[in-house]
Amino acid sequence: MVYKHVMKVLLIVMVMVPSALATSLDWKPFKTRFMASDGRILDTGNHNVSHTEGQGFSMLFAVAANDKASFDKIWGWTKTHLNDPKTGLFYWRYNPIIADPIEDKNNASDGDILIAWALLKAGTRWDNKAYLAESDRIVRALLDHTVIDFAHHKVMLPGRHGFTAKDSITLNPSYFIFPAWRDFAKRSYLANLWTLIDDSQQLLAEIDWGREKIPTDWITLYANGKTAPAKKWPARVSYDAIRVPLYMKWDQANNPLLSRWQSWFSRYSRLSMPAWENMIDHQVANYPMRGGLLAVRDYTMGQLSQEATKIKTSDDYYSASLKLLSALADEGFAF
């Protein structure tokens, strides 16, 4: 009985005392600049729209900062305004200046993953069974509506609609949030999740185009198992694909595929690294990586400093989000 009492006290202390990450994460300036009073997260680089990606990122940041009040506001707004009752997923975009703010009823799988992952983290950190139940429900909905078998791979589509054709599908590798998938798999032990992780890693390993063989923002998977840059978008490693090495290293620091990204980053000095590069013709942006993009580069190269994750006035919502994500990944963010 004494042992149980001591363990209970220790658990309470662990929850009440902020972690090192809670004190170092630059959450307060992020919240001040990008979170409205009702919990809506403003994408300041995109006319102050909101989307599930931003809501999910910010829920994660609030958990890491041990800020339950903000977490509940963000989650409350998300559930009230973006929930799709037909699927159990979320409408991906909210535009407050139009008559119907939900102008696109599709979901974005990465946003749904982030929301479910944040709820799992919150349920664990604050011992809240309701959060855990919501997380489990969203994961099941993701498996039901976005995970398919194609070309001998189990893959997650970027959304329910618009990404499948007769002989090919379109994928966004930055939506492969491996550390979240692994947490979901450990909690549920669903075989589909373990297969999704393995097949998605294999898909990235099989890329055989481009100098570094790294995925562009959007890729096409053909029925014969081959991949190529998706034709509807420039063949760039840019603002989407930059998250691929972040999630890859966050999941497994020794993942051999990271060497491909490190090779790309090593082609340029840190301050001259272009913001994007076309992997087919190798044209590059005429401006360098800054802010959050540079933080991801530094994290991937094992060179991340605390200063690189601090939010500056020049950072918009996305740059600031990448900085905080890099900080979370560098700390491991596990309970």
Rank of each mutant, 00 (worst) to 15 (best):
K105G: 02
K105V: 08
N106P: 12
N106M: 08
N106R: 06
N107R: 09
N107M: 14
N107T: 03
A108T: 03
A108L: 04
S109D: 07
S109G: 08
S109M: 11
D110M: 11
D110K: 03
D110W: 06
D110G: 08
G111E: 03
G111N: 05
G111T: 00
D112T: 01
D112I: 03
D112W: 00
D112M: 05
D112V: 00
I113K: 10
I113Y: 10
L114I: 05
I115L: 11
I115F: 14
I115K: 08
I115E: 11
I115Y: 05
I115S: 10
A116V: 02
A116F: 02
W117S: 06
A118E: 02
A118F: 03
A118H: 03
L119P: 05
L119Y: 04
L119V: 02
L120G: 04
L120T: 03
A122Y: 06
A122K: 07
G123A: 05
G123K: 04
T124V: 11
R125K: 14
R125L: 02
R125Y: 03
R125A: 09
R125C: 03
W126N: 08
D127G: 10
D127H: 14
D127W: 06
D127R: 11
D127C: 02
D127P: 00
N128C: 02
N128K: 03
N128W: 02
K129D: 10
K129T: 09
A130N: 14
Y131Q: 13
Y131T: 01
L132V: 09
A133V: 08
A133P: 01
A133N: 11
A133K: 10
A133E: 11
E134M: 08
S135T: 01
S135Y: 05
S135H: 09
S135V: 01
D136G: 08
D136F: 04
D136M: 06
D136H: 12
R137M: 13
R137Q: 12
R137L: 06
I138M: 11
I138W: 10
I138V: 12
V139K: 13
R140I: 07
R140H: 15
A141C: 12
L142H: 01
L142E: 08
L142K: 04
L142Q: 06
L143R: 03
L143E: 14
D144F: 09
D144G: 07
H145F: 15
T146I: 05
T146A: 15
V147Y: 07
V147G: 08
V147L: 12
V147H: 14
I148V: 15
D149P: 05
D149Y: 05
F150W: 11
F150N: 14
A151Y: 07
A151M: 10
A151G: 13
A151N: 15
H152Q: 15
H152E: 09
H152I: 03
H153F: 13
H153Q: 13
H153T: 10
H153M: 11
K154S: 05
K154R: 15
K154F: 00
V155E: 02
V155W: 04
V155M: 09
M156K: 02
M156P: 04
M156I: 09
M156D: 09
L157A: 12
L157C: 13
L157F: 08
P158K: 04
P158M: 05
G159L: 04
G159D: 06
G159T: 06
R160T: 13
R160V: 06
R160Y: 02
